[in-house]
Amino acid sequence: MIGLVVVSHSSKAAEGIRDIAGQMGGGKARIEVAGGDVDGGIGTDANAIKEAIEAADDGDGVVVLVDLGSAVMNTELAFEMTDVEAEIADAPVLEGALNAAVESTSKKATLDSVVSSAEDARDYRKTD
């Protein structure tokens, strides 16, 4: 199964997104979080992201959803620190995580299909 990682500058935000996406994935999605900096404040940490990626991986790869710019930078650094096949989805973190969680539970899910599903969320409109 494709694993998911939610990276946020806030540990509470990452955990909340994981909880919502996990419910949408029927409780079957493999979702890890990396939120906050090493001191428990606002920020991101490449080592924590690396650990989350490795925990989410069962050999099929991992899709990472990020909130803000430095989360991208630290995720890319984490990729350099692990051999896990992983990719950042260019998607809004909450909506993308929901889509990815649902797709990741499909028996036909691939790394590409989960990334694509997450990225479909970029086009969601909240109003007409």
Rank of each mutant, 00 (worst) to 15 (best):
M1H: 11
M1I: 04
I2H: 07
L4G: 02
V5W: 12
V5C: 09
V5M: 02
V6F: 04
V7S: 09
S8A: 15
H9Q: 11
S11Y: 05
G16L: 09
I17D: 08
I17P: 10
I17R: 08
I17Q: 04
I17V: 15
R18S: 13
I20G: 06
I20S: 07
A21W: 03
G22V: 05
G22Q: 09
Q23V: 13
Q23I: 12
Q23H: 10
M24R: 07
G26E: 11
G27M: 06
G27Q: 03
G27I: 01
K28D: 11
A29C: 11
R30E: 09
I31Y: 06
I31Q: 10
E32H: 03
V33C: 13
V33H: 08
A34G: 02
G36Y: 00
G36Q: 09
G36K: 05
D37E: 06
D37S: 10
V38Y: 14
V38D: 12
D39E: 13
D39I: 00
G40I: 01
G40M: 03
G41R: 11
G41Q: 04
G41K: 11
I42T: 05
T44R: 01
D45I: 04
D45K: 02
D45P: 03
A46H: 06
N47K: 13
N47H: 08
I49T: 08
K50Q: 13
K50F: 03
E51T: 09
A52I: 07
A52C: 06
E54L: 01
A55M: 05
D58W: 01
D58G: 15
D60H: 10
D60E: 15
G61C: 02
G61T: 00
V62R: 00
V62L: 01
V63E: 02
V63K: 00
V64K: 06
V64Y: 01
V64M: 06
L65M: 14
L65R: 08
L65E: 09
V66H: 02
D67I: 04
G69T: 01
G69P: 09
G69S: 11
V72D: 07
V72L: 09
N74H: 14
T75G: 05
E76L: 13
L77S: 12
A78E: 06
A78N: 06
A78H: 04
F79D: 01
E80D: 13
E80Y: 00
M81A: 13
M81T: 05
V84T: 08
E85I: 00
A86E: 03
A86W: 00
E87M: 05
I88K: 06
I88V: 14
A89D: 10
D90C: 12
D90K: 11
A91N: 08
A91R: 06
P92S: 05
P92K: 07
V93W: 11
L94T: 10
E95V: 02
A97P: 10
N99S: 14
A100V: 12
V102Q: 09
S104D: 08
S106W: 12
K107Q: 15
K107W: 14
K108D: 15
A109M: 05
T110R: 03
D112Q: 15
D112F: 00
V115P: 01
V115E: 04
V115R: 03
S116N: 14
S116Q: 13
E119L: 04
D120V: 11
A121E: 04
A121I: 04
A121R: 08
Y124M: 14
K126R: 13
K126Y: 11
K126S: 14
K126D: 14
T127I: 15
